[in-house]
């Protein structure tokens, strides 16, 4: 195992973390299931590479712009589908994801089904780490604000959210928008890391994989999503020696976790500095003052 290989796995894990963070906002915090996020990822990937390679925009700008294009498309899709209830929305996203893939398969401007080769490699571990940190912080701050609380209210009890004045439709649209931007950015990074884009990369399997990661990590937990995206990207790599059996083991691991911990790895809780200090037995600031108060 050389460093080049390990770095590659870590970069892929980082890219998956970004996509899963976005989906976590939609599924974990707002309670909407989507099986079309690979579609947003594809839009972000192709737009970013188009901005970067055909229009000559700088790398970071084109990746973020690609994310925004995915976001804009989500606004359009959201207007059409977010008035639908639960399962219907889920099916609509499934159709959307497949439609995007088929459109890209047949539009020759971007290479069609043969793909888009020769994209320069511009993503390294540092880039992905920076995108990850920004992505995690933004989501943390959003969730701990009135906007995040309103999204959680939509997940918990939509009717009650309405009568306490929360515009549930608007928050669903915002949540879908932000999650599509995350997916789009992840797509752009993937394109610039793989140096090759093909519609086949963004099929239903990819969308399903991300939804599994969100649930595996635990609904409504940012650290759970990060952990799950990391574990479920690294695990199949570690199982390479099992050849064809590795995805059987992968599937079995997912089933095992769902039976043993139906609430997911983190079960709606977060890993916090205070929590880690507690486990390690380091007294926190609050506890210190409480102790000196007793004396």
């Amino acid at each position: 195992m050389n460093w080049f290989y390990i770095e590659g796995v870590l970069i892929l894990a980082g890219i998956n973390i970004i996509a899963v963070l976005g989906l976590s906002l939609l599924t974990g915090f707002t309670g909407l299931f989507s099986f079309g996020h690979a579609g947003f990822m594809a839009i972000g990937a192709y737009s970013a590479v188009y901005f970067g390679e055909r229009m000559g925009l700088p790398f970071a700008v084109s990746v973020v712009a690609g994310g925004l294009v995915a976001g804009l498309v989500s606004l359009f899709i959201g207007r059409l589908t977010l008035k639908l209830k639960g399962d219907y929305f889920c099916i609509a996203t499934l159709g959307f994801g497949e439609a995007i893939r088929l459109v890209l398969d047949n539009v020759q401007v971007f290479g069609g089904a043969r793909g888009w080769p020769g994209i320069p490699l511009k993503v390294d571990l540092v880039t992905v780490t920076i995108f990850n940190i920004v992505g995690i912080l933004f989501l943390m701050f959003l969730i701990n604000s009135r906007h995040g609380r309103s999204m959680i209210a939509v997940r918990e009890e939509e009717l009650a959210a309405k009568v306490i004045g929360i515009d549930t439709y608007r928050y669903k649209v915002i949540s879908l928008f932000i999650s599509a931007v995350y997916a789009g950015i992840a797509g752009g990074l993937l394109g610039y890391y793989l140096t090759f884009l093909q519609p086949k990369l963004f099929g239903l399997q990819k969308s399903t994989e991300y939804t599994i990661m969100v649930i595996f990590g635990g609904i409504g937990s940012i650290s759970g999503s990060v952990l799950a995206a990391f574990i479920l990207t690294v695990l199949p790599e570690m199982l390479r020696s099992f050849a064809v059996w590795r995805f059987v083991i992968y599937g079995a691991a997912v089933i095992f976790i769902m039976i043993a911990r139906p609430q997911g790895l983190m079960g709606g809780k977060e890993i916090t500095l205070k929590g880690i200090a507690g486990i390690l037995g380091i007294p926190g600031r609050n506890r210190k003052t409480a102790r000196s108060g007793e004396v």
């Binding site: 604000s145 009135r146 995040g148 609380r149 209210a153 306490i164 004045g165």
Partner: peptide, 21 residues
């Protein structure tokens, strides 16, 4: 959290106010 969620109408900061603290 139940009560805090319902307090949202007494504030008007936007998403970017929150994201940038």
């Amino acid at each position: 959290q139940n009560v805090l969620t319902a307090c949202h109408h007494n504030a008007d900061y936007g998403i970017f106010d929150a994201a940038l603290r």
